[in-house]
Design a protein around this nucleic acid. Structure first.
Length: 209
DNA sequence: GCGATGATGAACT
DNA sequence: GTTCATCATCGCA
C-alpha cells in the first residue's frame, strides 16, 4: 500500500474529514520498533472561520501555531492535563482548518498498542481521540510534523462510498455544538463511545461497511 | 448499566 | 481563577 501524495490534503476541511475515513494512519518510532497502523473510522472538522469550538477561533497562539502550517501537517496538543490529541491540517494554506482524529481500528502492531495502552481490549485500544494517540505513541514531538514521514504518514485506501459515512454533531465541546461536523464509518465498532444516552442498543441502525 | 468525579496542564478572562 | 476537542475508576442500581 502506498503513501498518500501531499496534494491529497489540499481539500476544504469538511471534505477532508470525510476523505480521511478508511485511510491507514502509520507511525514509526525508529529502527527496531514495529510499524503501528490504524484505519481511521471517526473524524471531526474544525474550521478556520465561523467555528467557535476551534482552537484557531481566537487567532494564532503558541499552542496552535501548527494549525496555520501547510496542509498535511500534524497539530498535536495536550488536553485536560492527561491526553494528547492529534489533528491533520487542511487547505487552504495558512487558514488554520484542521481535522481531529477521533477513533481508529487497529491494523498492525497491535501487541505494541496493547502494551502502550495497558489493555488487551481491542475495542478499547483506539476508540477515542486520547486513546489513539497513546496507542500510536503520538506526543509533543509529532506537533508540526509533516505527514510525508519519516515518523508518521498515511497509506492510501479505496474511497468509502457515501452510504457508509455517518454524520453527527461533534463530541465533547461546549460551543458551536449544533454543527454536524463529526464524520464516522457507519457500523464500525471502533468509533468512540459517547457517554450517557447511548450504548449499543439492539436495533443497530447502521450498515456494515 | 449508569452517572459522578479526579487527574493535571495550558490558554484564556 | 476558570475552562477545556478526555479517560479511567468509583459507587450505586
Amino acid at each position: 500500500m502506498k503513501s498518500i501524495a501531499p496534494d491529497f490534503y489540499l481539500l476544504p476541511t469538511l471534505l477532508l474529514s470525510e476523505r480521511l475515513l478508511g485511510k491507514i494512519f502509520v507511525t514509526w518510532q525508529g529502527p527496531g520498533t514495529p510499524l503501528l497502523k490504524g484505519r481511521i473510522v471517526e473524524t471531526e472538522a474544525y474550521l478556520a472561520e465561523q467555528d467557535e469550538a476551534s482552537h484557531a477561533w481566537r487567532g494564532r497562539t503558541q499552542r496552535n501555531r501548527a494549525m496555520f502550517g501547510p496542509p498535511g501537517t500534524l497539530y498535536v496538543y495536550f488536553s485536560y492535563g492527561c491526553h494528547y490529541l492529534a489533528n491533520i491540517v487542511s487547505e487552504p494554506v495558512g487558514s488554520a482548518g484542521a481535522v481531529l482524529l477521533r477513533a481508529m481500528e487497529p491494523v498492525e502492531g497491535i501487541a505494541e498498542m496493547e502494551r502502550r495502552r495497558g489493555t488487551r481490549e481491542l475495542l478499547s485500544l483506539m476508540s477515542g481521540p486520547g486513546k489513539l494517540t497513546q496507542a500510536l505513541g503520538i506526543g509533543p514531538e509529532h506537533d508540526a510534523q509533516s505527514l510525508s514521514g519519516p515518523k508518521c504518514w498515511l497509506e492510501d485506501a479505496p474511497e468509502l462510498p457515501a452510504s457508509c459515512i455517518g454524520t453527527s454533531p461533534r463530541i465533547g465541546i461546549t460551543r458551536s455544538t449544533a454543527l454536524p461536523w463529526r464524520k464516522f464509518v457507519k457500523g464500525s465498532p471502533h468509533v468512540s463511545k459517547t457517554r450517557g444516552a447511548t450504548g449499543p442498543k439492539k436495533g443497530r441502525n447502521l450498515l456494515e461497511c
